[in-house]
Amino acid sequence: MTEYKLVVVGAGGVGKSALTIQLIQNHFVDEYDPTIEDSYRKQVVIDGETCLLDILDTAGQEEYSAMRDQYMRTGEGFLCVFAINNTKSFEDIHHYREQIKRVKDSEDVPMVLVGNKCDLPSRTVDTKQAQDLARSYGIPFIETSAKTRQGVDDAFYTLVREIRKHKEKMSKDGKKKKKKSKTKCVIM
């Protein structure tokens, strides 16, 4: 069974824990209790493949930012979460993405942009803004509501699919490099 290491990042209060708990335990946590770091595991079937999701729910508070490099190193894919009623959390996505790329030393890291709290009427981040940002990053965008469960499975499952595509691409690139290195030079 394939294991996928997913990391949920975003500013404090955007609903990272609520999304994760909704996926794992099928219930909505409405009281806000700032996370330092929590880890969850769940076995699911995605596109006919049974897999184990190892999900790291991270601290959004700035005082825990020193811990970010460590979990970013171990993560295979990242859910970059903002709240649709919090423009600052949307603007912060850029910083999370840049930090992930720096730590992973790669421009090509599996990510999904997630606009959470889409059940709320007080939207300050337009869907088109988020779609445009995701398009500019070359990553999928999904709106979710941890409260109603809308888009929750889709967000995590899409990230797994992005990781699969990335692994497939990397193995193809690896095979191309191996083929090239088999060419021999004969000096007579």
Rank of each mutant, 00 (worst) to 15 (best):
L19N: 15
L52C: 14
C51M: 10
I46Q: 11
N26P: 07
S39L: 12
G15W: 00
D30V: 10
V45W: 08
D33Q: 03
K42G: 08
E37C: 03
V9I: 11
L6K: 00
G60N: 02
F28H: 07
D38H: 03
D54R: 06
V29T: 12
Y40T: 02
A59G: 12
N26A: 13
I55P: 02
I36V: 12
L6N: 01
D30I: 09
A18L: 02
V14E: 09
L52N: 15
C51V: 15
Q22K: 12
K42D: 11
V45S: 14
D47T: 08
Q22F: 06
I21Q: 15
V7R: 12
G13A: 11
T20I: 06
F28K: 04
E3M: 08
C51E: 11
I21A: 15
Y64C: 03
Q61V: 09
I46A: 11
D30F: 10
E37I: 04
L53A: 11
A18E: 04
I55H: 07
L52K: 15
Y32I: 05
E31Q: 08
G12I: 05
E31P: 08
T20C: 08
I46G: 13
R41D: 11
D47L: 05
Y40P: 01
D30W: 08
I24T: 13
L52S: 15
V9Q: 04
G15K: 02
I46N: 13
L23S: 15
E37S: 00
A59T: 08
G12D: 14
D30Q: 14
Q61T: 12
V9H: 05
D57A: 01
Y32T: 05
H27R: 07
Y40G: 01
I46H: 10
C51Q: 11
T50M: 12
L23E: 15
I36P: 02
D54M: 04
V44F: 08
G60R: 01
G12L: 06
V9C: 14
L56V: 14
K42L: 12
Y64L: 08
L52Q: 15
S17H: 00
G10I: 00
Q61L: 09
V7K: 07
A11D: 08
V44S: 13
T2S: 14
T2V: 09
G12P: 10
P34K: 04
P34H: 06
E31I: 12
K5Y: 02
K5G: 08
I24Y: 07
S17I: 03
E37P: 02
G15A: 01
L19V: 11
K16Q: 02
D54L: 04
Q43D: 13
E62F: 05
D54Y: 05
H27W: 09
R41T: 13
